[in-house]
Design a protein around this nucleic acid. Structure first.
Lengths: 197, 197
DNA sequence: CATCACCTTCCTAACGGTCGTTAGTCAACT
DNA sequence: AGTTGACTAACGACCGTTAGGAAGGTGATG
């Protein structure tokens, strides 16, 4: 077993495309630019992918798979922690991961402005990761409730937690890391005070 | 004085362009489609605007002006209200306004994915409205603090409020109005419990 | 009042450029 | 021998934009 230090062309195309799609969107990115950055000619792309949309979907699949894999490692981090910590770690790690500029950008773009013809294909892909997330959160909330740490109204708490998560997610893009960290800390403190019994 | 029931061509172009730019973005929108929806031929657009970018900027100017005007009316609604209500109304009205699909979409697009060559021009335009907002919020928080209703740490409260606002703003686009209303209500309740003394 | 120049707003035609895509070829590797 | 992955050339479609002209209205001048 050895470390894979070089990428094959298809992977290089995906990597370059991720970067461009993230920064310029689907229509803002041209195959010419992708090919140029990979170091091949435009028609050579068709040796690896059916068409532009196919490249995009391959990129999205990779983004999704990476995100889910990351979420798994975070979930593993949670065992043997206090439930309060679990909630906070989940929030923090999520924004930390999406802070990676390209990942966060393309994620945001897909969710908010899906390309018209790809809208449905994208929505499908999101459901899996979202369900997983909700399951994990609900398990933690149940734990907290049974220990009598938080108030009974789970639905209220869940809604507020998702709002907190969406807010901090959005702010990742406005503010530099230091400032974002402060905002996250403050928002979390208010949230926690708000749900504690 | 009479009600203006018909628009001139320039206004029609702006209205049509707003809708298209919102849904498809700057590069995703073609002059051909704009012209077609207005009911004229593509080159006729140049009788009213210098070029595509000029149309976009005219649209943005209108969006900004409308938003600021709306904010004024909301601010007027706030007088003679309890400070707690003020905070909530500000939050609610903001999302209600941006719920209008096209307005919300183009607003979001501009903030998150400004077209590369227009980035700086757009950033300028945002500063005015953002400062106004922060000023209004801080005045309310000061009021609440002097009355001993909320905790002393204004920075923490302000950060949490903005997170709440960004979160509800983001969720406007995911969820139907009824569900969003419930989420807003729940998030607000947790927030308010979290900042109360 | 009639004429004239001018401006606005629309048109058709066409420009050069870029887009995504295909055809056909060729060398290298399996 | 067959497959892979690169190439050159070129396709038609569409892009934003410009040129040039027709029609209508406005306002000044005789």
């Amino acid at each position: 077993m050895e470390v894979q230090t070089s990428q094959n062309t298809a992977d290089k195309i995906k990597a370059v495309s991720l970067s461009l799609f993230a920064r310029k969107g689907f229509e803002g990115t041209s195959l010419a630019e992708i090919a140029s950055r990979v170091g091949i000619k435009k028609p050579s792309l068709y040796a690896h992918f059916k068409n532009k949309e196919d490249i995009f979907l391959a990129v999205i699949d990779k983004v999704m798979a990476d995100y889910i894999a990351y979420f798994e490692t975070v979930a593993n981090k949670l065992v043997n922690r206090q439930a309060e910590e679990k909630l906070f770690i989940l929030l923090k790690e999520n924004t930390d991961y999406l802070r990676d500029e390209e990942l966060g950008l393309i994620w945001k773009r897909m969710m908010l402005f899906p390309h018209e013809t790809l809208k449905e294909k994208l929505k499908e892909k999101f459901l899996a990761s979202e369900e997983k997330m909700t399951g994990t959160i609900l398990a933690i909330l149940k734990e907290l409730k049974e220990d009598g740490i938080i108030q009974e109204n789970t639905e209220e708490v869940l809604d507020a937690y998702y709002c907190l998560m969406d807010g901090t997610f959005e702010q990742v893009f406005y503010y530099p890391e230091i400032e974002h960290k402060r905002r996250l800390q403050h928002s979390w403190q208010v949230f926690w005070k708000g749900i504690k019994r």
